[in-house]
Design a protein around this nucleic acid. Structure first.
Length: 382
RNA sequence: UGCCCCAUCGUCUAAUUGGCAGGACAGCGGUUUUUGGUACCGUAUGUCUAGGUUCGAGUCCUAGUGGGGCAA
């Protein structure tokens, strides 16, 4: 019996999470986080958060638990949205949802819950936590391999995990819907949410153009035969320069593009599609390669700078000079990839993949696992 | 300002002896996905202009226009 604050998002997952906690005998409080209030950038005609907030309220009423709406849109803008702009500006591809969990849900929101006298904060994430014999807490993948959301929790630390509960982590998505329906929960059949957490689906290019300036530059296609692809240098971007290929079009700013991107280049007439292979925000050049087998699209290793290396389970941290065979994913829902991690002398991390990885976008998180246990993560340099 | 080639969706191209103008890429729409991106499905759009021959012209003929080449 504990006091638990549940982050009700207005979706099925958090709804059932609240119901389950209640059934387990806990005192449950529903809290809806409002993280965005600018409807001008979302796709839906009407304000999506109002509908979600109403659904959360309905669920709370159905369960008979106290309910509150908490406005975190100010901090969300400062900590997530502004960071996003800064990252894109610098030519990297951020992951706002990972930051949202680290900075908002399991920081400010958690703090607010503790203020309410809560012992724990619960969310509808498909993930599990397990207490280890040494007192540490392990973060495990959700039981449903199709919905596992541990990736988005990869930046949490032990303090945060110690206050976190994931009541639906043992369930499969269909079971969640079934259980929700069995309990008459109003959101049982509600469509899964997509896009930025709590903002909804946005047109990212439009969103970015609110802040980032338009700056025309050239799109340079570099052939697969270019010598530079042959021996990638660890920790460094491809040694590209404009003369390595030929200009095939114009873009409106290299910072709007991300590695691996196909759409939006507006260059046609090719036998195979063009993919972004690299961006150079200094020279304002977008480099592209033709076909999904293009050598520039694959990297055998990635580098995580010392300041970006984060171990969720500190006792598993590699010491300088140590190596370990683990499994890594570099994007949500990617099947785990075999890789060897090595802690370098400067405390940065080297990840060597068994199979070269496609479309490694600097700024995205590499997340390493030992089986179902998420051990750590870090934003990739190159 | 003589001669010879070429001209098809936005782009690159295909179309037997004259017989429903097709594809790829780009675009647009949708599906999948709590990041970016990817993937998948579905779609609109074209025969340079003006005449002529023919039942029928992208295809043959004439002229024009535009681009390329030879000739200086």
């Amino acid at each position: 019996m504990a006091r638990v604050v549940v982050g009700l998002s207005g979706g099925v997952d958090s709804s059932l999470a609240a119901a389950l906690l209640l059934e387990q005998g806990h005192e449950v409080i529903g809290l809806f986080m409002r993280n965005w209030n600018d409807a001008s950038v979302t796709l839906e005609a009407e304000c999506p958060w109002i509908e979600d907030s109403n659904d959360a309220l309905l669920v709370a009423e159905h369960l008979g638990i106290p309910f509150q709406v908490m406005d975190l849109s100010g901090p969300y803008k400062e900590r997530i949205v502004d960071t996003m702009f800064a990252e894109y500006q610098a030519g990297r591809t951020p992951n706002p949802d990972v930051l949202c969990n680290r900075e908002i849900k399991f920081d400010l929101f958690l703090e607010a819950a503790l203020q309410l006298g809560a012992d724990y904060v619960a969310t509808g994430h498909y993930a599990r936590r397990r207490d280890l014999p040494n007192g540490e807490i392990a973060l495990l993948a959700g039981r449903d391999p199709n919905k596992d959301q541990s990736y988005f929790l990869c930046q949490l630390n032990q303090a945060q995990l110690s206050k976190a509960l994931f009541p639906i982590g043992e369930l499969l998505k269909p079971e969640v819907r079934q259980e929700a329906a069995a309990r008459g929960i109003p959101t049982a059949a509600k469509k899964d949410s997509q896009g930025l957490c709590f903002i909804g689906k946005v047109r990212l290019p439009d969103f970015l153009q609110q802040q980032l300036s338009v700056k025309p530059g050239s799109i340079v296609e570099v052939p697969a035969s270019w010598e530079g692809w042959k021996n990638p240098e660890f920790g460094a971007p491809w040694p590209l320069h404009a003369a390595a290929g030929k200009a095939v079009g114009q873009h409106q700013g290299a910072h709007f593009f991300t590695v691996g991107q196909r759409k939006g280049l507006l260059v046609g007439g090719k036998a195979e599609p063009l993919f972004v292979v690299a961006t150079d925000t200094r020279e304002n050049i977008v480099y592209v390669g033709q076909g999904e087998q293009h050598p520039g699209l694959y990297r055998p290793f990635v580098h995580v700078a010392a300041k970006d290396v984060h171990w969720v389970v500190p006792s598993r941290a590699l010491k300088v000079g140590e190596s370990a065979p683990l499994q890594v994913r570099i994007r949500y829902r990617q099947p785990l990839q075999e890789a060897v991690l090595t802690a370098l002398p400067d405390h940065s991390l080297r990840i060597d993949f068994a199979v070269p990885q496609k479309a490694v976008a600097p700024g995205q998180f590499a997340v390493w696992y030992d089986g179902e246990a998420l051990l750590g993560s870090g934003a990739m340099a190159h």
